[in-house]
Computed example of a mutant assay.
Amino acid sequence: MPPDVVARYSELTAEGTLQVRRGEFRLAAEQFEAALQIARELNDPHLIHRAVCNLSTARLSQGQIQEAEKGLREILLKSPDPNIIFIASSNLASALRRQGRLQKALLYAKRALRASDTIDNYTWKATCHNLIANIYMNMSYLDDAMAEYRFALTLSQRGGLGTSYPVDYIKENLGYCSLLKKRYRQGIAIILEALQISLANGNTRCLVECYQDLCFAYMQLKELKRAEEYGEKALAIATEKDYKDILKNCYYLLGEVNLLMENEERSDFYFDRLQELYPHLPVLKQFLRTFDVSNIINLKNPF
């Protein structure tokens, strides 16, 4: 196996991983696709499996759920490597969660957890418990979710991760879960901490989720001007980075905030943008203008 080619594969993989942690998912996908091409030219099954899993991670983050699933189940049947099993299981769990198939998602997340028990990698261990917590949150098992988030933070401390990835995501999710339990001030405090960490880490994706969730929190507290400011910050980043799920949430949030502020024209603008994304639901805009769904919506659920 040519050492220079393998070194290039490793370089592309490392670059892609760094871009994922920064929230630059399109760049990450390009790096992982190039690594996959090298692995196929070398005809090395292990390198192919690793590259497919990494590319799946980037595609998941871009919202390409069906593409992200491709090949993962076959990898689980073929690979004995616990590292590969962890990534494939974790990504399948994430894909299924985003499709609302929560029981199956939990099964794969627990398979990833079993694999992580054999790996001395506290980043992965913490990430896995964060994933399980996300699934519990989508199931509305909020106390179980908060326990998992807190355990993920404990593992992060035990592993000496400090404020590095994935601590920013875990804190952000814990803060949002507090919002769902209507502990708004507590949730805001945790999310603001996550915001500072994500800024320091250069994690654009976590940063935009912080802005989005702060918009929601201040909307619930009827501090509408502050809610609007955070919502507009989230929308600007989501537009630039093409975070499709955040875009949808921001159109809803800013439509609702402006409706509460009696800015009818601005509210219509945002609800119209949201309606364009759901042509199969022609009454969505009118429904949202008529009914307040802010107490039942979950911004981390498939929308």
Score class of each variant (00 low, 15 high):
Tyr136Trp: 13
Ile75Gly: 14
Leu142Val: 10
Glu193Lys: 12
Met261Asp: 14
Cys177Met: 03
Arg73Thr: 08
Ala145Pro: 14
Glu41Ala: 12
Thr239Ser: 14
Asp213Thr: 02
Asp272Pro: 08
Thr204Ser: 07
Cys206Val: 08
Asp81Thr: 09
Gln31Trp: 09
Thr118Ser: 14
Glu33Phe: 13
Ile85Ala: 13
Ser79His: 10
Thr118Ala: 13
Phe291Met: 08
Arg226Thr: 15
Gly162Thr: 04
Leu107Lys: 11
Glu148Thr: 08
Phe151Val: 00
Gln64Tyr: 09
Arg150Tyr: 00
Asn54Ile: 00
Cys206Gln: 04
Gly71Leu: 12
Lys182Phe: 00
Glu276Pro: 06
Leu60Gln: 13
Leu260Ala: 12
Ala234Thr: 14
Tyr218Ala: 08
His129Arg: 12
Asp144Ile: 06
Leu214Val: 12
Glu262Cys: 04
Met261Pro: 03
Lys300Ser: 10
Met139Thr: 05
Pro166Met: 07
Asn258Tyr: 05
Asp4Tyr: 04
Gly255Lys: 00
Phe271Ile: 06
Ser89Cys: 06
Glu264Asp: 10
Trp124Lys: 09
Ala133Asp: 12
Ile75Thr: 15
Ala147Ser: 11
Ala236Gln: 11
Tyr136Gly: 09
Ala217Thr: 04
Gln186Leu: 05
Lys125Asp: 02
Arg158Asn: 04
Leu195Lys: 05
Tyr184Gly: 00
Gly100Gln: 15
Phe269Asn: 03
Ala39Tyr: 08
Ala112Phe: 15
Pro279Tyr: 12
Arg26Gly: 11
Arg21Ala: 07
Ser94Pro: 06
Gln62Asp: 02
Arg40Thr: 11
Asn249Trp: 13
Ala39Gly: 02
Arg183Lys: 15
Leu161Tyr: 15
Glu148Leu: 13
Ala234Trp: 02
Ile87Asp: 14
Arg8Tyr: 07
Asp120Gln: 10
Leu36Tyr: 15
